[in-house]
């Protein structure tokens, strides 16, 4: 077996690894890079537990070959918090008890972040459809949707504050 050398970026860090042609990005993250936040719930793209961002696009890392990561940018749940400060979604998931067993949580956080990054005022229905690729078997989704709605409010406030700062800087 001859390995494939790959250079990529994970959560802003340059990373190199050698993988087998069949290995998925999920296998690589977990088994080569020690990033266990993305989970394998199905291996077939049906549960979303392995969700990561690939060049700014939400994907299931179980449906990406490790070799495809060459030259790409990958973001995982491990890169979501800003130092000690949790992302609003992480904070709201805790406050709203939006997790029970927590195995699906990293995938939900990534998918919800992908939603809020381009739509910070989603309706309940938009939240539900944006998260339809992430299965949760514990919560009935109720508290997850509420947490995402609350985090959307936080993101809007952050955006407004940023706009105000920008305007003040220009004046």
């Amino acid at each position: 077996m001859k390995g494939i050398p790959v250079s990529t970026t994970v959560n802003g860090d340059d990373v190199e690894f050698v993988c087998d042609g069949r290995e998925t990005l999920l296998d690589v993250l977990r088994n080569h890079l020690g990033l266990i936040g993305a989970k394998e719930g199905c291996g077939t793209g049906d549960c979303g537990a392995c969700s990561v961002m690939l060049d700014g696009q939400l994907v299931c890392s179980c449906l990406v070959l490790g070799a495809e990561a060459e030259g790409r940018e990958i973001e995982t749940v491990e890169g979501m918090a800003d130092g000690e400060k949790l992302h609003p979604l992480q904070q709201r998931f805790l406050e709203h008890a939006a997790l029970q067993c927590g195995i699906c949580t990293p995938g939900f956080l990534i998918a919800a972040k992908a939603l809020l990054d381009h739509n910070s005022s989603p309706s309940e229905s938009e939240i539900r459809y944006a998260l339809a690729g992430n299965l949760c078997r514990c919560t009935g989704y109720d508290k997850i949707v509420r947490a995402v709605r609350a985090a959307a409010g936080d993101v809007r406030r952050q955006q407004k504050a940023r706009a105000r700062r920008k305007a003040a800087a220009q004046n």
Partner: peptide
């Protein structure tokens, strides 16, 4: 599929 699948 999902948004995840849509991305690919």
């Amino acid at each position: 599929g999902s948004d995840q699948i849509q991305g690919r």
